[in-house]
Design a protein around this nucleic acid. Structure first.
Lengths: 153, 153
DNA sequence: ATTTAGGTTCAGAAAATTCTGAATATTCAA
DNA sequence: TTGAATATTCAGAATTTTCTGAACCTAAAT
Protein backbone atom coordinates (compact mmCIF):
# COMPACT_ATOMS: atom_id res chain seq x y z
CA UNK A 1 0.00 0.00 0.00
CA UNK A 2 1.17 3.47 -0.93
CA UNK A 3 2.07 5.23 2.33
CA UNK A 4 0.35 8.33 1.03
CA UNK A 5 -2.91 6.43 0.75
CA UNK A 6 -2.51 5.23 4.33
CA UNK A 7 -1.80 8.72 5.53
CA UNK A 8 -4.90 10.03 3.85
CA UNK A 9 -6.98 7.29 5.41
CA UNK A 10 -5.61 8.16 8.85
CA UNK A 11 -6.58 11.79 8.32
CA UNK A 12 -10.07 10.68 7.46
CA UNK A 13 -10.35 8.67 10.66
CA UNK A 14 -9.05 11.74 12.45
CA UNK A 15 -11.82 13.90 11.11
CA UNK A 16 -14.51 11.43 12.14
CA UNK A 17 -13.08 11.02 15.62
CA UNK A 18 -12.61 14.76 16.06
CA UNK A 19 -16.29 15.28 15.28
CA UNK A 20 -17.05 12.94 18.12
CA UNK A 21 -15.08 15.07 20.52
CA UNK A 22 -11.49 13.84 20.45
CA UNK A 23 -8.51 16.01 19.58
CA UNK A 24 -7.38 15.91 15.97
CA UNK A 25 -4.02 14.42 16.93
CA UNK A 26 -5.70 11.61 18.84
CA UNK A 27 -7.81 10.61 15.86
CA UNK A 28 -5.00 10.85 13.34
CA UNK A 29 -2.70 8.71 15.41
CA UNK A 30 -5.37 6.09 15.91
CA UNK A 31 -6.19 6.11 12.21
CA UNK A 32 -2.56 5.58 11.33
CA UNK A 33 -2.21 2.71 13.77
CA UNK A 34 -5.22 1.05 12.19
CA UNK A 35 -3.58 0.81 8.80
CA UNK A 36 0.18 1.29 9.10
CA UNK A 37 2.71 -1.36 8.22
CA UNK A 38 4.26 -2.68 10.38
CA UNK A 39 1.60 -2.36 13.06
CA UNK A 40 4.27 -1.35 15.57
CA UNK A 41 5.39 2.26 15.34
CA UNK A 42 7.82 4.40 17.28
CA UNK A 43 7.11 7.94 18.35
CA UNK A 44 9.39 9.24 15.61
CA UNK A 45 7.60 7.20 12.94
CA UNK A 46 4.20 8.34 14.14
CA UNK A 47 5.25 11.97 14.13
CA UNK A 48 6.76 11.72 10.66
CA UNK A 49 3.77 9.91 9.21
CA UNK A 50 1.16 12.33 10.48
CA UNK A 51 3.16 15.54 10.54
CA UNK A 52 2.94 16.06 14.28
CA UNK A 53 5.53 17.33 16.70
CA UNK A 54 7.14 15.03 19.24
CA UNK A 55 5.14 16.80 21.90
CA UNK A 56 1.82 16.19 20.22
CA UNK A 57 2.64 12.56 19.63
CA UNK A 58 3.64 12.15 23.25
CA UNK A 59 0.43 13.65 24.55
CA UNK A 60 -1.74 11.90 22.00
CA UNK A 61 -0.24 8.51 22.71
CA UNK A 62 -0.59 8.95 26.44
CA UNK A 63 -4.32 9.48 26.02
CA UNK A 64 -4.63 6.61 23.56
CA UNK A 65 -2.82 4.36 26.00
CA UNK A 66 -4.94 5.43 28.97
CA UNK A 67 -8.08 4.84 27.00
CA UNK A 68 -6.98 1.29 26.33
CA UNK A 69 -6.95 1.60 22.56
CA UNK A 70 -3.19 1.34 22.18
CA UNK A 71 -0.43 -0.40 24.10
CA UNK A 72 3.31 -0.12 24.31
CA UNK A 73 5.41 -2.95 23.04
CA UNK A 74 9.14 -3.46 23.44
CA UNK A 75 11.00 -2.13 20.47
CA UNK A 76 13.96 -3.92 18.86
CA UNK A 77 16.23 -0.89 19.25
CA UNK A 78 16.10 1.70 21.98
CA UNK A 79 12.86 2.78 23.60
CA UNK A 80 9.49 1.32 22.77
CA UNK A 81 6.87 1.26 20.07
CA UNK A 82 3.11 1.43 20.06
CA UNK A 83 0.51 -0.81 18.48
CA UNK A 84 -3.22 -1.09 18.63
CA UNK A 85 -4.41 -3.14 21.52
CA UNK A 86 -5.71 -6.45 20.14
CA UNK A 87 -9.02 -5.81 21.82
CA UNK A 88 -8.89 -2.12 21.12
CA UNK A 89 -12.38 -1.04 20.36
CA UNK A 90 -14.01 -3.56 22.60
CA UNK A 91 -12.14 -1.86 25.44
CA UNK A 92 -12.44 1.71 24.34
CA UNK A 93 -16.03 1.74 23.38
CA UNK A 94 -16.75 -0.37 26.37
CA UNK A 95 -19.20 2.21 27.53
CA UNK A 96 -19.41 0.96 31.08
CA UNK A 97 -17.06 3.58 32.50
CA UNK A 98 -19.00 6.46 31.02
CA UNK A 99 -22.22 4.85 32.06
CA UNK A 100 -21.09 4.51 35.63
CA UNK A 101 -20.44 8.24 35.67
CA UNK A 102 -23.99 8.81 34.49
CA UNK A 103 -25.43 6.46 37.07
CA UNK A 104 -23.69 8.39 39.83
CA UNK A 105 -24.91 11.68 38.41
CA UNK A 106 -28.51 10.48 38.27
CA UNK A 107 -28.28 9.12 41.82
CA UNK A 108 -27.03 12.50 43.01
CA UNK A 109 -30.04 14.13 41.41
CA UNK A 110 -32.38 11.65 43.05
CA UNK A 111 -30.79 12.38 46.41
CA UNK A 112 -31.44 16.07 45.86
CA UNK A 113 -35.11 15.40 45.19
CA UNK A 114 -35.13 13.44 48.41
CA UNK A 115 -37.70 10.82 47.62
CA UNK A 116 -36.68 8.30 44.99
CA UNK A 117 -40.31 7.40 44.36
CA UNK A 118 -41.43 11.01 43.82
CA UNK A 119 -42.79 11.86 40.37
CA UNK A 120 -40.21 14.63 40.07
CA UNK A 121 -37.50 11.98 40.24
CA UNK A 122 -38.99 9.96 37.43
CA UNK A 123 -36.67 11.26 34.71
CA UNK A 124 -33.62 10.70 36.86
CA UNK A 125 -34.73 7.28 38.06
CA UNK A 126 -35.51 6.03 34.59
CA UNK A 127 -32.17 7.18 33.26
CA UNK A 128 -30.31 5.62 36.17
CA UNK A 129 -32.10 2.32 35.71
CA UNK A 130 -31.41 2.22 32.01
CA UNK A 131 -27.69 2.67 32.44
CA UNK A 132 -27.59 0.22 35.29
CA UNK A 133 -29.22 -2.36 33.06
CA UNK A 134 -26.76 -1.74 30.25
CA UNK A 135 -23.75 -1.89 32.53
CA UNK A 136 -24.96 -5.21 33.88
CA UNK A 137 -25.50 -6.72 30.46
CA UNK A 138 -22.56 -5.44 28.47
CA UNK A 139 -19.87 -7.78 29.82
CA UNK A 140 -21.77 -10.89 28.79
CA UNK A 141 -22.30 -9.46 25.32
CA UNK A 142 -18.59 -8.72 24.97
CA UNK A 143 -17.72 -12.20 26.10
CA UNK A 144 -20.05 -13.69 23.56
CA UNK A 145 -18.37 -11.72 20.80
CA UNK A 146 -14.94 -12.87 21.92
CA UNK A 147 -16.02 -16.49 21.88
CA UNK A 148 -17.48 -16.14 18.43
CA UNK A 149 -14.43 -14.30 17.11
CA UNK A 150 -12.13 -16.98 18.44
CA UNK A 151 -14.11 -19.61 16.63
CA UNK A 152 -14.11 -17.67 13.35
CA UNK A 153 -10.39 -16.99 13.21
CA UNK B 1 -36.64 21.93 45.85
CA UNK B 2 -34.72 25.19 45.99
CA UNK B 3 -34.29 26.37 42.39
CA UNK B 4 -30.72 27.29 43.22
CA UNK B 5 -29.99 23.68 44.12
CA UNK B 6 -31.44 22.55 40.82
CA UNK B 7 -29.40 25.10 38.92
CA UNK B 8 -26.23 23.91 40.57
CA UNK B 9 -27.06 20.34 39.73
CA UNK B 10 -27.59 21.26 36.10
CA UNK B 11 -24.19 22.96 36.03
CA UNK B 12 -22.66 19.77 37.37
CA UNK B 13 -24.26 17.70 34.64
CA UNK B 14 -22.97 20.29 32.20
CA UNK B 15 -19.40 19.83 33.35
CA UNK B 16 -19.58 16.06 33.02
CA UNK B 17 -21.12 16.23 29.58
CA UNK B 18 -18.67 18.87 28.40
CA UNK B 19 -15.81 16.59 29.38
CA UNK B 20 -17.29 13.99 27.10
CA UNK B 21 -17.17 16.37 24.18
CA UNK B 22 -20.44 18.30 24.19
CA UNK B 23 -20.70 22.08 24.37
CA UNK B 24 -21.23 23.54 27.84
CA UNK B 25 -24.63 24.93 26.90
CA UNK B 26 -25.81 21.53 25.68
CA UNK B 27 -24.90 19.87 28.96
CA UNK B 28 -26.36 22.61 31.15
CA UNK B 29 -29.67 22.59 29.32
CA UNK B 30 -29.91 18.83 29.55
CA UNK B 31 -29.04 18.91 33.23
CA UNK B 32 -31.74 21.46 33.89
CA UNK B 33 -34.34 19.44 31.99
CA UNK B 34 -33.47 16.43 34.12
CA UNK B 35 -34.45 18.13 37.34
CA UNK B 36 -36.60 21.21 36.63
CA UNK B 37 -40.16 21.58 37.79
CA UNK B 38 -42.34 21.51 35.80
CA UNK B 39 -40.60 19.22 33.33
CA UNK B 40 -41.79 21.39 30.44
CA UNK B 41 -39.80 24.57 29.90
CA UNK B 42 -39.97 27.39 27.40
CA UNK B 43 -36.94 28.91 25.74
CA UNK B 44 -37.22 31.94 28.00
CA UNK B 45 -37.34 29.80 31.14
CA UNK B 46 -34.36 27.76 30.05
CA UNK B 47 -32.33 30.85 29.30
CA UNK B 48 -33.22 32.48 32.61
CA UNK B 49 -32.48 29.34 34.61
CA UNK B 50 -29.06 28.69 33.13
CA UNK B 51 -27.98 32.22 32.29
CA UNK B 52 -27.78 31.71 28.56
CA UNK B 53 -28.77 34.00 25.72
CA UNK B 54 -31.76 33.26 23.53
CA UNK B 55 -29.35 32.41 20.75
CA UNK B 56 -27.46 29.85 22.81
CA UNK B 57 -30.67 28.24 24.00
CA UNK B 58 -31.96 28.06 20.45
CA UNK B 59 -28.81 26.38 19.18
CA UNK B 60 -28.48 24.11 22.18
CA UNK B 61 -32.06 22.94 22.00
CA UNK B 62 -31.81 22.28 18.30
CA UNK B 63 -28.93 19.89 18.94
CA UNK B 64 -30.67 18.28 21.89
CA UNK B 65 -33.74 17.76 19.79
CA UNK B 66 -31.83 16.30 16.86
CA UNK B 67 -30.03 13.93 19.17
CA UNK B 68 -33.37 12.64 20.38
CA UNK B 69 -32.83 13.56 24.03
CA UNK B 70 -35.45 16.28 24.11
CA UNK B 71 -38.73 16.90 22.32
CA UNK B 72 -41.00 19.86 21.75
CA UNK B 73 -44.40 19.86 23.33
CA UNK B 74 -47.29 22.24 22.74
CA UNK B 75 -47.28 25.05 25.22
CA UNK B 76 -50.42 26.50 26.81
CA UNK B 77 -49.64 30.04 25.70
CA UNK B 78 -47.80 31.07 22.55
CA UNK B 79 -45.03 29.01 21.06
CA UNK B 80 -43.87 25.70 22.46
CA UNK B 81 -41.95 24.17 25.33
CA UNK B 82 -39.34 21.47 25.64
CA UNK B 83 -39.19 18.39 27.81
CA UNK B 84 -36.96 15.37 28.05
CA UNK B 85 -37.95 12.65 25.68
CA UNK B 86 -39.46 9.84 27.76
CA UNK B 87 -36.95 7.43 26.30
CA UNK B 88 -34.21 10.01 26.29
CA UNK B 89 -31.04 8.21 27.10
CA UNK B 90 -32.05 4.97 25.53
CA UNK B 91 -32.23 6.92 22.28
CA UNK B 92 -29.29 9.18 22.71
CA UNK B 93 -26.81 6.70 23.95
CA UNK B 94 -28.15 4.27 21.49
CA UNK B 95 -24.72 3.91 20.06
CA UNK B 96 -25.78 2.31 16.83
CA UNK B 97 -25.50 5.48 14.76
CA UNK B 98 -21.95 6.15 15.84
CA UNK B 99 -21.12 2.51 15.41
CA UNK B 100 -22.42 2.48 11.88
CA UNK B 101 -20.06 5.31 11.09
CA UNK B 102 -17.19 3.25 12.44
CA UNK B 103 -18.23 0.19 10.49
CA UNK B 104 -18.15 2.21 7.28
CA UNK B 105 -14.78 3.65 8.16
CA UNK B 106 -13.30 0.21 8.82
CA UNK B 107 -14.76 -1.12 5.60
CA UNK B 108 -13.16 1.72 3.66
CA UNK B 109 -9.83 0.80 5.20
CA UNK B 110 -10.27 -2.84 4.27
CA UNK B 111 -11.06 -1.80 0.71
CA UNK B 112 -7.81 0.16 0.62
CA UNK B 113 -5.84 -2.89 1.70
CA UNK B 114 -7.59 -4.73 -1.10
CA UNK B 115 -7.76 -8.20 0.39
CA UNK B 116 -10.11 -8.54 3.36
CA UNK B 117 -8.34 -11.72 4.45
CA UNK B 118 -4.87 -10.15 4.41
CA UNK B 119 -3.07 -10.01 7.75
CA UNK B 120 -2.65 -6.23 7.30
CA UNK B 121 -6.43 -5.93 7.39
CA UNK B 122 -6.73 -7.83 10.64
CA UNK B 123 -7.07 -4.74 12.87
CA UNK B 124 -9.68 -3.21 10.61
CA UNK B 125 -11.58 -6.44 10.16
CA UNK B 126 -11.72 -7.18 13.86
CA UNK B 127 -12.95 -3.70 14.66
CA UNK B 128 -15.58 -3.83 11.95
CA UNK B 129 -16.83 -7.19 13.15
CA UNK B 130 -17.04 -6.04 16.75
CA UNK B 131 -19.20 -3.05 15.93
CA UNK B 132 -21.33 -5.07 13.59
CA UNK B 133 -22.00 -7.51 16.39
CA UNK B 134 -22.92 -4.76 18.82
CA UNK B 135 -25.20 -3.02 16.35
CA UNK B 136 -27.00 -6.30 15.75
CA UNK B 137 -27.48 -7.03 19.41
CA UNK B 138 -28.29 -3.65 20.89
CA UNK B 139 -31.93 -3.37 19.78
CA UNK B 140 -32.93 -6.60 21.52
CA UNK B 141 -31.23 -5.45 24.70
CA UNK B 142 -33.09 -2.13 24.61
CA UNK B 143 -36.36 -3.90 24.03
CA UNK B 144 -35.73 -6.13 27.00
CA UNK B 145 -35.14 -3.11 29.20
CA UNK B 146 -38.33 -1.48 28.03
CA UNK B 147 -40.32 -4.58 28.82
CA UNK B 148 -38.84 -4.83 32.26
CA UNK B 149 -39.35 -1.12 32.96
CA UNK B 150 -42.98 -1.34 31.96
CA UNK B 151 -43.50 -4.17 34.39
CA UNK B 152 -41.78 -2.33 37.26
CA UNK B 153 -43.66 0.93 36.94
C1' DA C 1 -53.98 43.37 8.18
C1' DT C 2 -51.44 44.67 12.10
C1' DT C 3 -49.21 43.96 16.16
C1' DT C 4 -46.29 41.58 19.09
C1' DA C 5 -44.36 37.68 21.51
C1' DG C 6 -41.46 34.12 20.22
C1' DG C 7 -37.75 31.99 17.44
C1' DT C 8 -33.79 31.71 14.30
C1' DT C 9 -29.55 33.07 12.10
C1' DC C 10 -25.19 35.05 11.77
C1' DA C 11 -20.96 38.10 12.18
C1' DG C 12 -17.83 39.01 15.33
C1' DA C 13 -16.20 39.05 20.37
C1' DA C 14 -14.79 36.18 24.06
C1' DA C 15 -13.06 32.04 25.75
C1' DA C 16 -11.06 27.60 25.52
C1' DT C 17 -8.33 24.17 23.31
C1' DT C 18 -4.61 22.27 20.75
C1' DC C 19 -0.14 22.30 19.04
C1' DT C 20 4.67 23.35 19.09
C1' DG C 21 9.57 24.49 20.31
C1' DA C 22 12.55 24.54 23.87
C1' DA C 23 13.96 23.02 28.18
C1' DT C 24 14.14 19.11 31.12
C1' DA C 25 14.12 14.37 32.39
C1' DT C 26 14.78 9.52 31.53
C1' DT C 27 16.74 5.36 29.80
C1' DC C 28 20.00 2.40 27.92
C1' DA C 29 24.57 1.12 25.73
C1' DA C 30 29.16 1.18 26.29
C1' DT D 1 29.54 6.88 35.09
C1' DT D 2 29.15 9.01 30.98
C1' DG D 3 27.11 10.06 26.56
C1' DA D 4 23.61 9.75 23.33
C1' DA D 5 19.12 8.64 21.98
C1' DT D 6 14.52 9.00 23.30
C1' DA D 7 10.58 10.79 25.90
C1' DT D 8 7.96 14.19 28.73
C1' DT D 9 6.52 18.65 30.28
C1' DC D 10 5.18 23.27 29.88
C1' DA D 11 4.59 28.23 28.54
C1' DG D 12 2.91 30.62 25.03
C1' DA D 13 1.36 31.03 19.97
C1' DA D 14 -2.01 29.65 16.78
C1' DT D 15 -6.19 27.89 15.99
C1' DT D 16 -10.75 26.59 16.88
C1' DT D 17 -14.95 26.69 19.28
C1' DT D 18 -18.59 28.78 21.76
C1' DC D 19 -21.44 32.45 22.98
C1' DT D 20 -23.83 36.71 22.36
C1' DG D 21 -26.29 40.90 20.56
C1' DA D 22 -28.63 42.48 16.85
C1' DA D 23 -31.07 41.94 12.79
C1' DC D 24 -34.42 39.33 10.76
C1' DC D 25 -38.09 35.98 10.30
C1' DT D 26 -42.63 33.57 11.75
C1' DA D 27 -46.98 32.89 13.45
C1' DA D 28 -50.78 33.72 16.68
C1' DA D 29 -54.14 36.93 18.55
C1' DT D 30 -57.05 40.52 17.82
Amino acid sequence: MDPEVGRRYAEEVGVVLARMGTTPAFGKLLGWLLICEPPQQTTAQLGAAMGLSKASVSTGMRVLEQSGLVRRVPSPGRGHAYEMHPDAFARALDPTDKMRVFIDLMQRGIDLVGDAAAPEARRLRHTRDFYTFMVERTPALMEEFRRQARKDS
